[in-house]
Amino acid sequence: MSTWQGREIVDLLTDIIDREIVDPEGVPLGRVDDLELRSRDDGRTEVVALLTGTVALEPRLPRWALTLIRASARLTGGPDDPRRIPIEAITKVDTVVSITAAAAAAAASPSEERLKRKIIGRIPGADHASE
């Protein structure tokens, strides 16, 4: 509902972290697990990219959860490096973060890809949505 349009202050922790990232069709490709920050010459800090992937999420998870998360990442052939979505690729932020088709393709999940290639994509009918 609420967009960033016309706002002077944005709280990164509540207004972007953990939001779902979607491609132009609205299909999710991850969540904002972390942010990449850069110190500018004028001493200020700016956000340069969104990071998504379980490795980027790990620092914010309780310790007991790490074993579980890492085991499930290994199960799908990971862990993989976080995928990086440059800030310029964001087209809109509301309850979800929309990004361009090109950025979405570049940030596609490697584990999704492996699971598709090795198992799911080989089952007849895998290419048809049931709608």
Binding site: V27, G30, R31, E112, K116, I120, G125, A126, H128, A129
Partner: peptide, 23 residues
Amino acid sequence: LAQYFGWPWGKRVAPARGARFHA
């Protein structure tokens, strides 16, 4: 599971696109 991690999910996407969901 899919909604927590932000995977593509549901029956509107082809199973190949929602491989983790279908698995």
